[in-house]
């Protein structure tokens, strides 16, 4: 394990001394070490890292592979490994919403999910809302309602609004306000964002006529 610890620094400032120390004994050790298996409570359990391990992520319907340390978040993997820069890194502490993506139908802060944990899940980012060249109704509504200013929070907001409408196709103004409680806009474009959600709701595919769909589908 000591060896992994040192190899993890490759590419991010491996000191000359460490390099010499390690290279003498481990020239043949690959940088990606995968995992080791340990026996606990009568079962074999795989332990990954702390060096890089191979991962596979399904993002916007496409399968991607990368090699990351366990400490890499989904947000970092999306931006740095897969070049999907729609999800933004702002607070990086689960409080601003700029990194919002959809994971298995639920809105999540990608800064607070490890890339390793996101394997096997369906992940949708702002990029994945496009249908060819056509904007998603929520994206079009943001433009029509001037729902952004500097635009940094916008991809996270668009994703949060999309998943909110999936669950609440006929929202009341109060539900819209509450449903977007996980995203911050420092420019203060909330009035525009709420108007955009109301507009998009009118064009929503699974909207039902009449009645208030305030109750959720639950447990998806």
């Amino acid at each position: 394990m000591q060896r992994d610890e040192k190899m993890k620094e490759k590419g991010s400032g491996l000191s000359r001394r460490t390099f010499l120390k390690v290279s003498g004994i481990s020239l043949s050790v690959p940088v990606v070490l995968g995992h080791r298996t340990i026996k606990v409570a009568g079962a074999e359990v795989e332990v990954y890292g702390p060096g890089k391990v191979p991962i596979a992520l399904t993002v916007n319907g496409a399968k991607h592979t990368a090699e990351v340390e366990p400490r890499v978040t989904l947000l970092e993997a999306l931006r740095h490994e897969l070049d999907l820069t729609g999800a933004k890194r702002v607070c990086d502490r689960a409080t601003c919403g700029a990194c919002t993506v959809i994971m298995d139908g639920k809105p999540v802060y990608s800064c607070s999910v490890l890339a390793l944990e996101a394997q096997g899940k369906q992940i949708t980012t702002a990029e994945g809302l496009l249908r060819g060249d056509r904007l998603h109704p929520v994206q079009q509504a943001f433009i029509d309602n001037d729902a952004q200013q500097c635009g940094f929070c916008t991809p996270g907001f668009v994703v949060a609004c999309k998943v909110f409408l999936d669950k609440n196709p006929n929202p009341t103004p109060e539900e819209i306000q509450k449903g977007l409680g996980g995203n911050l806009c420092r420019c203060g474009t909330y009035v525009g964002v709420r108007a955009a959600v109301a507009q998009a709701a009118n064009q929503y595919p699974n909207r039902k006529g009449g009645g208030n769909q305030s109750t959720s589908k639950g447990g998806r």
Binding site: E5, V40, G42, A43, E46, G49, P70, R71
Partner: peptide, 19 residues
């Protein structure tokens, strides 16, 4: 964030042994 190793056990007995 400091580097760490990661395990994802499937029983509570395994989890406790890994702590």
């Amino acid at each position: 964030m400091r580097a760490f190793e990661y395990a994802s056990p499937t029983t509570k007995e395994q989890a406790v042994s890994l702590l």
